[in-house]
Write a protein that binds this DNA or RNA. Structure first.
Lengths: 201, 201
DNA sequence: CGCGTTATCTTGACGATGTAAAGATGCTGC
DNA sequence: GCAGCATCTTTACATCGTCAAGATAACGCG
């Protein structure tokens, strides 16, 4: 009943159509009309479900966070060592950005001019953040990290990983380095530095 | 002779107009026509200087890197200690992002779908990166960092700082934390962790 | 000095886009 | 079974990126 109507679940169909366009044609091809076309409805049909283009983008961004969350949790194979899980999570984060650069970008930059808030987006965002917080807590519980402010650790970790992913998909990692080492090797070094700063002496 | 023509230096006038629009109205207001209007020329005049909208954005992005470079070097007050200069540079980086979020964003994400290359953009990008490399070299020369691959250090540092700036302007730093501590204090902690990982034991 | 060439800019046009208004369609609850 | 409402289509409009054709003015070559 949430989204059922004449032709099925259009709201989610539009979101999925948008994600496909991001993946196959890039962000410049993402328009309300192209999304409607792909979903097989008229160009004004989306307005029954989204106030405007920004609201659709917010929904796509929320879905980006949801997908990211799924990939991050899936990457954490049953391992007792929280540091291992942190590594796995970080690589999954990078991989999502490399696999779906436009979806990743829009997830973090699409909903900016909004004084409006999009509760679904905020919720998914916080769920991802909570995942990092949990990892930090696990590390602290094992005495791997100091007992300083958990949130600060989480923000620091997220920043480092996020920044690398952003630079990588923006093609801003220096070409001389990338031709010499794989992105994953560079990232491995980055993670090593990050953990060296975090771990309790 | 480079850009002089009927009404003055239109090419740069258009770039500056674009930057002002980014600053005052945001990225959604940046159009070739709005830029032309602000520069006081007809809507097709930009095509004498830019092949298309993406070329204008590339020029705005290059100018973003140029401004960033200026702010980063200006922030490095005459201090012998390269760690101090690194701190100053990092804060200037964050400040630029906070002051001009849309210009900052477009600098790093605007020229993405380009298989074309924009030499001016690449040059300015590399100049900024070289600045970080120089800082790392100075730290290594003083024995503060190990003599491992300088480029890897530089990428790691840039990633950490860049990621924090991105999350900050995307409003993705957790609200509970931001209401408790200033962004600058959170950043200070982040930098402390970063340097703890980098410094030679 | 004069004239043609070329870079710069204007005007007008076209298709695409975001969005609003008005109408059609079909579900849903009373 | 009917009224109301959510959903969807059609039509319309301003704005956008881009192109083509023309005007204008600087510049080079004779």
């Amino acid at each position: 009943m949430n989204d059922q109507y004449h032709h099925g679940d259009l709201k989610n169909a539009l979101i999925q159509a948008g994600i496909e366009i991001l993946s196959k044609e890039g962000v410049q091809a993402l328009s309300l009309r192209s999304v409607a076309r792909r979903a097989g409805v008229s160009h004004a049909a989306p307005y029954a479900h989204f106030a405007d283009k920004e609201a659709l983008i917010a929904a796509i961004a929320a879905e980006g966070y949801r997908k990211l969350y799924a990939k991050l949790t899936a990457a954490q194979q049953a391992s007792g060592d929280p540091l291992v899980r942190l590594h796995q999570t970080a690589f999954a984060y990078l991989q999502f950005a490399l696999d779906e650069p436009d979806h990743f970008r829009i997830t973090f930059a699409g909903v900016v001019e909004a004084e409006r808030d999009y509760p679904e987006y905020v919720e998914q965002s916080q769920r991802c953040y909570a995942l990092v917080v949990e990892l930090v807590k696990a590390c602290q519980a094992r005495g791997l990290f100091t007992d300083e402010d958990t949130q600060l650790f989480a923000v620091s970790i997220w920043s480092s990983i996020h920044g690398f992913a952003q630079l990588a998909i923006a093609n801003q990692l220096p070409g001389a380095l990338v031709s010499r080492k794989s992105i994953h090797d560079i990232f491995r070094f980055h993670l090593r530095q990050l953990l060296a700063g975090l771990e309790k002496p």
